[in-house]
Simulated scan of single mutants.
Amino acid sequence: MIGVFDSGFGGLTIFHELRKALPAYDFVYLGDNARAPYGSRPFETIYRYTLEAVKALFRMGCPLVILACNTASARALRTIQQKDLPQIAPENRVLGIIRPTAEEADSFSRTGHLGILGTAGTVVSGSYPLEIHRFFPQLTVTQQACPLWATLVENGEVNSEGTRYFVKRDIDRLLAQDPKIDAMLLACTHYPLLYPVIREVAPPEVRIISQGEIVAKKTVDYLNRHPEIEKRLTRGGKVDFFTTDTPEFFSKGANFFGEHNVFAKNLSF
């Protein structure tokens, strides 16, 4: 199976596109809802939580795990790939969502000025500017931490006046840093649910980019280039959901994220 992990519900926006792109494959989605959000947690905590989830997905039979969480991708992926994977499962693979997004960054902006909207953990890590400049050093990349956005989404407050205030405030702060920005990347998987508010308060000429379709396209490409992993994946269109919170809580939240009639199983690390 293909394992998909997120700190909570946000990874469902990636998961949805992966299933559309790879409908014949079996998937497991794991949300660490009991400990979400990860964005403001210290590096060691994010790394430990993410490694626990990766190991759990490996035990379930997932030779490929996708960290559908920008914070986990920014703060834990490289350590897991370089330090842990050779020891615990050298034949398996763990992928993130920052690099595949960065590989497409030159298509986002006409002016060459790109804005990044992310959690505090993602922004502090500097992962997006680093990865983007590896491929496209000519781009100007400006970041803005949006510490409340994910929490507002998790609490179902996407349409409140408070949400509109904080979204506008953070976008204004981003554009104040660089008025030439003409594209903004939603570098948190929760943020697509705020798209209507973001589109309303952002200048109409600024493009808003979500990651789901990009990550799905890049995953298909990865499997085409790595038949040794692809041939280990089962096909049957089966999907299992796991959560570290209660199944009832997950089902309610998943419905809000567009995954209906979900019956999750509880998982304790």
Score class of each variant (00 low, 15 high):
I2D: 07
I2Q: 08
I2Y: 06
I2F: 11
F5Y: 08
G8F: 10
G8S: 08
G8M: 09
G10Q: 04
G10T: 11
G10M: 04
T13P: 05
H16R: 11
E17G: 08
K20R: 14
P23C: 09
A24Q: 11
Y25E: 11
F27E: 08
D32K: 13
A34Q: 14
A36I: 09
G39D: 04
S40A: 15
R41N: 08
R41F: 10
P42C: 10
E44S: 07
T45G: 01
I46V: 15
R48V: 14
R48C: 14
Y49I: 05
Y49D: 06
E52S: 09
E52C: 11
E52Y: 11
F58Q: 02
L64T: 03
V65T: 12
V65C: 12
I66S: 04
T71M: 06
A72N: 10
R75N: 12
R75Q: 15
A76S: 14
I80R: 12
Q81D: 05
K83D: 14
D84P: 07
P86H: 03
P86V: 02
P86M: 02
Q87M: 08
E91F: 03
L95C: 13
L95V: 12
R99A: 06
A102P: 14
F108M: 12
F108I: 11
S109L: 14
S109M: 13
R110S: 09
G112E: 04
H113N: 14
L117N: 08
G118W: 03
G118I: 01
G121M: 06
V123Y: 02
V123D: 10
E131N: 02
E131C: 02
I132G: 09
I132S: 03
R134A: 04
F136S: 06
F136G: 02
Q138D: 07
Q138G: 02
Q138V: 09
V141K: 12
Q143W: 05
A145F: 12
P147R: 02
W149R: 09
L152Q: 15
L152M: 14
E154H: 09
N155C: 06
G156Y: 10
G156F: 11
V158Q: 08
E161C: 12
R164V: 00
Y165L: 05
V167C: 01
I171Y: 03
I171G: 04
D172T: 03
A176M: 06
Q177D: 00
Q177W: 05
Q177I: 01
P179G: 05
P179C: 00
K180H: 06
K180N: 13
A187E: 01
T189E: 13
H190F: 06
Y191H: 00
Y191L: 01
L193C: 11
V197P: 07
I198R: 10
I198T: 08
I198D: 03
E200P: 11
E205I: 09
V206D: 04
R207A: 03
R207F: 02
I208V: 12
S210T: 14
S210M: 04
G212A: 06
G212Q: 10
K217Q: 14
Y222M: 00
E228V: 01
E228H: 00
I229G: 04
K231H: 02
L233C: 06
T234N: 15
R235S: 13
G236V: 14
G237P: 08
F241E: 01
F242R: 09
T246S: 15
P247Q: 07
E248W: 09
K252V: 11
G253N: 00
F256Y: 14
G258P: 15
E259R: 13
E259Q: 15
H260A: 15
V262P: 04
F263P: 02
A264Y: 00
N266Y: 06
N266P: 00
L267E: 00
L267R: 03
